[in-house]
C-alpha cells in the first residue's frame, strides 16, 4: 500500500508547510555557521563552550551582533561545530511537530480520514503507513540538517571547525532511535487526542514542561537528578553527540526502541477502538 505514502507526498508537496520546514533548517544552519555556535532550546548548552570561563562568557554576552558572536567564538579556538549542531537536534522537535500536523493532524481536523478509512484501507494499514511516512520525512529532515550544515560549515568556517563526514554520519545515526522515540510520542498524541488544537497545546510545550517539572521536583525534594539528565530527550541527544561511551549509546538506543514500541502500541490501540467523527 505504497500508494498511501505516494498520495501523502503528492498532497504535502502541493502545500507550503514542507518547504517552510526545510527553509527553517537552512536559516538555523546559516545562523549557527556564521555565529559559530549551535542555537538551542531548553536547558542544554554547547559541549564546546566552557560556561565556567567567566571572561569568555562575559565577552559572549556582550556581543551585540552575529558578527561579534562570530569573533568571540573564533577567539576561543577551533572546535567541531558540526558535532555541536548535531547535539542540538532537539531543535528539530518543533519541526517534527509540523510534519506530524501536515501528515496526520490535518486528516483528523478536516475529517478526510473518513474517506480513507471508509473506502480505501483498514485502520491498521492507515496507522502503519502514516507512521512510516512521518518517520521517512523526519529522517530526511535530520539528514538534511546534518549534511547541509556540514558542507555549509566547511564553506563558511573551514576545516578547523569541522569533523569528518563519517563522524557526523555516525553521530546522526546513533541519535535516530531516540529521535524515532520522540516522533512516536508525537504520533501517539495525535491518535489519542484526535484534535490539532489539543495536540499543539500539549506537544509544543511538552519538552520544556517535562524538563521544568522534573527539575522542580528534584530541586524541591533534593533528589539526585542525574538519571533524568542522562536519559531526558534533549540531554541524551546532546550527550550522544559528544559521548563515545558505547554502553551509553546502547542504553539510549534501547530507550529509543522502548519509546517507539510503547508509544506506538498506545497510539494504535487508542486509534483502533476510537470512533471516527
Amino acid at each position: 500500500m505504497i500508494n498511501m505514502i505516494k498520495a501523502d507526498f503528492f498532497r504535502i508537496l502541493k502545500g507550503k508547510a514542507i518547504y517552510m520546514i526545510f527553509l527553517v533548517v537552512i536559516i538555523l544552519g546559516i545562523v549557527s555557521a556564521v555565529g559559530i555556535s549551535a542555537g538551542h532550546i531548553g536547558i542544554s548548552t554547547s559541549s564546546n563552550i566552557d560556561v565556567n570561563d567567566a571572561e569568555f562568557m562575559k565577552k559572549l554576552s556582550a556581543a551585540k551582533t552575529l558578527k561579534d558572536v562570530r569573533n568571540v567564538m573564533k577567539s576561543g579556538g577551533e572546535f567541531p561545530l558540526d558535532k555541536d549542531v548535531i547535539g542540538q537536534n532537539i531543535n528539530l522537535y518543533y519541526l517534527f511537530i509540523v510534519v506530524v500536523v501536515i501528515i496526520l493532524c490535518v486528516d483528523f481536523s478536516n475529517k478526510s480520514i473518513k474517506n480513507t478509512l471508509s473506502s480505501a484501507i483498514t485502520r491498521k494499514k492507515y496507522y502503519y503507513f502514516k507512521t512510516i511516512t512521518i518517520f521517512a520525512i523526519c529522517t530526511v529532515l535530520v539528514l538534511f540538517n546534518t549534511y547541509f550544515f556540514y558542507f555549509l560549515n566547511i564553506l563558511i568556517n573551514g576545516k578547523g571547525f569541522s569533523s569528518s563526514l563519517l563522524d557526523v554520519t555516525k553521530l546522526t545515526i546513533i541519535q535516530l532511535p531516540l529521535i524515532y522515540g520522540i516522533i512516536s510520542l508525537l504520533i501517539c498524541f495525535v491518535f489519542v487526542l484526535k484534535k490539532t488544537s489539543l495536540f499543539n497545546a500539549i506537544a509544543i510545550p511538552f519538552i520544556m514542561a517535562v524538563q521544568l517539572l522534573v527539575i522542580g521536583i528534584t530541586s524541591l525534594f533534593r533528589l539526585d537528578a542525574s538519571w533524568f539528565y542522562n536519559y531526558e530527550f534533549q540531554f541524551a541527544l546532546s550527550k550522544l553527540s559528544s559521548s563515545i561511551d558505547s554502553s551509553y549509546i546502547i542504553k539510549c538506543s534501547l530507550l529509543g526502541l522502548f519509546y517507539i514500541v510503547l508509544f506506538n502500541v498506545i497510539g494504535y490501540y487508542s486509534f483502533k477502538n476510537t470512533e471516527i467523527k
Binding site: 500508494n3 498511501m4 503528492f10 502541493k14 480513507t116 484501507i121
Partner: peptide, 10 residues
C-alpha cells in the same frame, strides 16, 4: 487535486 490525492491512494 483532492480527487487526485484519493486516486493515488486507491
Amino acid at each position: 487535486d483532492n480527487l487526485k490525492y484519493y486516486a493515488i491512494q486507491k
